[in-house]
């Protein structure tokens, strides 16, 4: 009996040893998974953005306002501001979203709906968090898969696939956990920038109330349980 228990222990240790030994190898690097994903992300970002470029506002008062807020968040959190490609879209929908390769799209509808810069900074910090936590590519890889994404970049999937991808990123929520992760990170970014997360919470609460004066609320329909989010953001705020 004792001998069998000892043998079981040795066998388990052997299996664990094999796993530990194998995990010493950097398989991600060996299979070039990160490099492949980065190259794919860059290509996808450029392709999706090419289809929207015409509606983009790249200068003016609104652009400067958002740009200064994004720059402040990046500077305080040690992010490379040049990596983020900011685009303002003339659209009345209250919406903001991240595209692959650090393209960040903000609708004028959102800029008009916020009451102050703290509220806008909250939404921007949330989208920056999605980018910094690689949520954009994680979501695309989950919902479309590597094969379809590669076929989009080679043109095999047809033009409709890019539209589908854009629709997915601009109007479908990330799963609950990723949204919460982005909120928590956003609070951290805001605090480091010296902005109170209460503004972000106020904006979410107002969206949760579905205030009629806010117009078309894409950002809320894609981000469920706004009131609940406002509650935990307030709890985290100093």
């Amino acid at each position: 009996m004792k001998k069998t228990i000892l043998q079981a222990f040795i066998l388990l240790s052997l299996a664990a040893g094999i796993y530990l030994l194998i995990s010493r190898v950097n398989w991600m690097k060996l299979f070039r998974i990160e490099k492949m994903t980065d190259a794919l992300e860059q290509k996808l970002g450029d392709m999706v953005w090419a289809g929207m470029e015409e509606q983009s506002i790249e200068e003016g008062k609104e652009y400067d306002r958002v740009d200064s807020l994004v720059t402040a968040i990046c500077k305080s959190n040690g992010f490379n501001r040049d990596k983020i490609k900011l685009h303002i879209m003339g659209d009345s929908e209250v919406n903001a979203f991240a595209l692959p390769d650090h393209h960040m799209v903000v609708h004028t509808g959102l800029i008009n709906a916020v009451h102050n810069n703290d509220e806008l900074s909250g939404v921007l910090a949330h989208e920056i968090a999605h980018m910094e936590l690689s949520h954009v590519m994680k979501k695309l890889l989950k919902q479309m898969g590597y094969t379809l994404l590669i076929s989009i970049t080679t043109g095999e999937a047809g033009g409709g696939a890019i539209k589908e991808l854009l629709g997915m990123l601009s109007s479908t929520a990330y799963d609950r956990k990723l949204e919460k992760d982005a909120d928590i990170k956003a609070i951290e970014y805001l605090k480091k920038t010296g902005i109170s997360p209460n503004g972000f919470a106020d904006f979410l609460y107002r969206l949760g109330e579905k205030d009629g004066s806010l117009g078309s609320l894409s950002w809320i329909s894609t981000h469920p349980d706004s009131k609940e989010r406002a509650k935990y953001i307030r709890e985290e705020a100093p």
Binding site: A15, I22, S23, K139, K142, D181
Partner: peptide, 23 residues
């Protein structure tokens, strides 16, 4: 890894799958 957005291909995952293959 395939269906959850918060789980992705990682070094521990690949190492485990290779271990499973070897075993």
């Amino acid at each position: 890894v395939l269906f959850r957005e918060d789980e992705h291909v990682s070094n521990p995952y690949l190492a485990y799958i290779i271990t499973v293959f070897v075993v």
